[in-house]
Design a protein around this nucleic acid. Structure first.
Lengths: 129, 129
DNA sequence: TTGACCATACGAAACCCTTCGTATAGCTTG
DNA sequence: CAAGCTATACGAAGGGTTTCGTATGGTCAA
């Protein structure tokens, strides 16, 4: 009766998930069209991937219409959280702070984002004391 | 004559790199012993992986002794930077701030680490104005 | 109704990752 | 020297990922 852990999505799967998160529930054709704008990819390739993702439980499929409608099973946040946790473990020896430092050093955050991060820091440090 | 981009290390490769970063230049046996403490893994498996990593350019090999000595080709920082950059692209739509938020929300940073991050933030915001 | 179009299903090829068995040769020591 | 240990090299199996060709059937309009 226990929930199986979310399988880590592969590269191709993640790009499909990103479309589903952005667009919401979508057909294979819609996902394919969205992906085609940035990368050449065959229709049946996307179809097959989404079928596999259904088996894995990464997406859920509504078969009530002829063109099945797929939806990401987990929220973008939920998935990101687990991807980050995995990376922290694998590449940063469990230190999420080290990852944060690397990400911030990669200079790509706007002033607005930086202050948002600062607010989060305030909240976190508030909790600690 | 152009530098090839660093190939992304696989899971198994990354755990070997972590040993090399921590220990410095090491033989296959030393890496194997270090890994064995946390995960069962055959000696020739580690050997084969390190041979492949040599071909990929992830490590460099000193063959002057009978037991070859391997060294990580790129610094831990350099590798982490590229792994993070890749993840930001693939999973966070290019926003490193979003990744930072996720990592920090994963609550696992000490007060000391948090203030270190805060200092980095100060420096970054200083640059912006 | 029939042909064009669009959908899913299926299977196989190509490639990569990981693992390990086995071959071969150097070293060391009794 | 011979036996035993230790090293690299090589190849192949097994599994996962990605791609795509092809089969099959539903839908719609002329």
């Amino acid at each position: 009766m226990s929930e199986r852990p979310i399988p880590r999505p592969t590269h191709a799967e993640l790009s499909i998930l990103r479309v589903l998160w952005e667009r919401g529930p979508s057909t294979v054709r819609e996902v394919h069209d969205a992906l085609s704008s940035t990368q050449a990819t065959g229709y049946t390739t996307v179809l097959k991937l989404m079928q596999i993702m259904t088996e894995k439980g990464l997406v859920v499929r509504d078969e009530s219409e002829r063109a099945h409608v797929y939806e990401a099973r987990h929220s973008e946040q939920r998935m990101q959280r687990q991807i980050v946790a995995d990376l922290v473990e694998r590449a940063f020896g469990g230190s999420s702070a080290k990852l944060v430092m690397q990400a911030l050093s990669g200079r790509k955050a706007s002033a607005a984002e930086l202050s948002e991060i600062r607010e989060l820091l305030d909240r976190l440090e508030g909790d600690k004391r």
